[in-house]
Design a protein around this nucleic acid. Sequence first.
DNA 1: TGCGACAACTTGACACTGACAAGATTGCCC
DNA 2: GGGCAATCTTGTCAGTGTCAAGTTGTCGCA
Lengths: 196, 196
Amino acid sequence: MTMETAKTTPERPYHHGDLRRAILSAALDVIAAEGPSALSLRDLARRAGVSHAAPAHHFKDRTGLLTAIAAEGHALLSAALTEATDLRDAGVHYVRFAREHPAHFQVMFTPELLRENDLELTTARALTADRLRQAVSDRGPEPGTDPRLAGVAAWSLAHGFATLLLGHNLDGAVGDQDPEEVFRTLTGMLFQPPSA
Amino acid sequence: MTMETAKTTPERPYHHGDLRRAILSAALDVIAAEGPSALSLRDLARRAGVSHAAPAHHFKDRTGLLTAIAAEGHALLSAALTEATDLRDAGVHYVRFAREHPAHFQVMFTPELLRENDLELTTARALTADRLRQAVSDRGPEPGTDPRLAGVAAWSLAHGFATLLLGHNLDGAVGDQDPEEVFRTLTGMLFQPPSA
DNA sequence: TGCGACAACTTGACACTGACAAGATTGCCC
DNA sequence: GGGCAATCTTGTCAGTGTCAAGTTGTCGCA
């Protein structure tokens, strides 16, 4: 009486059409709402109207699904960073990405959930790293500062802000202001603008 | 044949003695090694040599256990922050806490895993927030900067650095250097020292 | 047009998990 | 010493991930 059977009917053909995408997007919904730990492959299958083992064919594993999400996230993020005009703008794009794709963001930075040696993931991640490096070097060499350290500083700031934001740890501080604007003024405080 | 029975013998008395602490510390080990998603109450019970339902009596829930860990983490962190001499030092203590108590740190900032209305947690968390505010205000009011924003900036930087560090995202950048030292020089770059 | 191979999906099973209810054991306090 | 509450056990249930084996559909190619 579990009613888990998924009979094939005119409305529900044997082949779903784009099951992979359907599972992915359902997974993103769940993760954004309740975190990765609430993710259940069987639940995703039910939402897509397929049998409980169907997801495995596309993602092999729970880990496989999450790895695919992380890789997609890196692709989205690196694309967003490409549009940045300067280092500060890259930070703003970073924060915006975290807000617009919270599920991706969370999974990307939770290594226990991922297959670290996955090819798609590592290449996508390398691309993101490239974009970050590029954003830092675009700023031009500053006297007496290791560019690598500057990159770590900028990344830490943006990542910390985004993470705390998603965890609702800054609700009191930012209030009803636009988080991106807060971040912008915040970077202005730290990174002295060239024009004083 | 699951061998999950735990007969009461001279070496294994009916009452464990300090089961709560034993479960907590086993949980911290697991989380530090494989993340919170790998946590199993039954596994913890096995490690402590008690029956599978024993943990529930101390923590009620999986969520209860994680909430207790988060509360303990906040107690440890606020204590560490109390020892800080100035804002930069508070950041160093923050990073050190994350490195010394990675499991606590991770759980503290994963709200989906916690019982947010838990009294012990909210009070412990409030104490941490107080210590952070205090570290910022100790620095003294700076001209033309909102102290609240300065607090967000400092917290974001420390939190981002700690998070990226634990996720092994800075391995390449910090190399074999002491992370705390890297963080110290990093803050020196951003927060201009009073003596130029 | 037919056929064969492959991809997509289903069915069934197994071990494991969190949670709950009910019972057993123990230490402790009056 | 007798009860009583805290601690721990046993038994059970629904739900989960994963594997193996079978079905159904699709598409290229003779």
